[in-house]
């Protein structure tokens, strides 16, 4: 299998799905002539032309709304947010329109639409460019939320998202675009709602997604040196959660750490923990530990930024806490 970067894997998914279905088109800021702010759409304009690869003005609400209307009339738009921070400008279109349309029209108008782009903190971009949006979008019925951690997953998951007949929030990560791994060639799908065990273990389950899985992998390697055998579980789809897979893992390890880049309060990680407490309480040997972003806006200063975000050290500490090791 060829080694390719995350951005290239996403690019392959877009290209293959646009080739497969001419109703699929992509629009967003700088996706065409600039080849994408992060080069995910590189070469697509040359290949498919300006009808299907469309540079938009800086009008997130306008072009997201346009995508909803186009989807109602039978097209399959892929909206790129240059950053998911900018999706906040379009949030009424995403929640009041995309998420609710199929239901409030009594099943008359479904919205086959993917909204994708980098989510979470970039390096040193301070408070307004560092939001983690998964907890917000996962809150509202009508949206699926996906967040790949590896290039191979990214490709198969994006293809599933584009083929879905409902709106999908597809969260990438700026710091993971150059992550390089083996990616299968050609057509393959990772279904919505299917998680993956990234490392088999017996002592503690660390649940993490997106870039946090990379940190968790490093933490697991460190902990292995100390004799702690970590199981790494990537839900991949954050809504709906793969609870059967989570249950299988928790029943084996009986101890859980949930890692997320977002804040502690009212978060997706809190939901994961709650679901485990509700469904699997009897299988737990210790309280679940959560590693999150601290409860402050992202600061610019390097030391403060590092203190705000989850880290390998914080994950190691949490894993030791739930296994009662010091």
């Amino acid at each position: 299998m060829p080694m390719i970067e995350m951005r290239e894997a996403l690019n392959q998914a877009l290209k293959e799905e646009m080739t497969r279905d001419e109703k699929v088109f992509i629009l967003g800021e700088e996706v065409a002539e600039f080849n994408g702010a992060y080069k995910v759409t590189k070469g697509l304009l040359d290949h498919f032309g300006p009808k299907r690869v469309i540079d938009t003005p800086i009008s997130e609400s306008g072009f997201t709304g346009l995508a909803v209307g186009a989807a109602m009339m039978g097209l399959r738009p892929v909206v790129e947010f240059m950053s998911f921070n900018f999706s906040l400008v379009a949030i009424d279109q995403i929640i009041s329109n995309a998420a609710k349309m199929y239901y409030m029209s009594g099943g008359l108008y479904n919205i086959p639409m993917v909204m994708r782009g980098p989510n979470g903190a970039g390096p040193r971009v301070s408070s307004q460019h560092s939001h983690n949006m998964e907890s917000v979008y996962a809150h509202f019925p009508g949206l699926h939320v996906m967040a790949p951690s590896t290039p191979a997953d990214a490709k198969g998951m994006l293809k599933a998202a584009i083929r879905c007949n409902d709106p999908v929030i597809f969260l990438e990560n700026e710091l993971a675009y150059n992550l390089k791994e083996e990616v299968p060639e050609g057509d393959y799908i990772i279904p919505i709602g299917k998680g993956d065990i990234k490392r088999q273990g017996t002592d503690v389950t660390i649940i993490a997604w997106s870039r946090m899985m990379s940190l968790a992998k490093t933490a697991a390697e460190e902990l292995a040196k100390e004799g702690l055998n970590v199981e790494l579980l990537d839900p991949r789809t954050l809504k709906p959660l793969d609870m059967p897979l989570i249950a299988e893992s928790v029943k084996k390890t009986n101890r859980v750490v949930v890692v997320e880049e977002g804040h502690y309060f009212s978060s997706l990680g809190a939901q994961v923990a709650e679901s485990i407490y509700t469904d699997l309480f009897d299988y737990l040997d210790s309280p679940i530990a959560r590693v999150c972003q601290s409860e402050n806006p992202m600061p610019y200063a390097a030391n403060l930024e590092a203190a705000t975000l989850p880290s390998v050290e914080k994950i190691i500490r949490a894993a030791k806490q739930v296994t009662y090791r010091n």
Binding site: S61, G62, A67, G69, A70, A71, M73, S96, N97, M104
Partner: peptide, 19 residues
């Protein structure tokens, strides 16, 4: 559709025109 957020339907309308 009828839409409940003032101004929320404009995008839908131009999306249909785009289609």
């Amino acid at each position: 559709g009828g839409h409940g957020i003032v101004g929320g339907q404009f995008g839908i309308g131009i999306g249909a025109a785009f289609k």
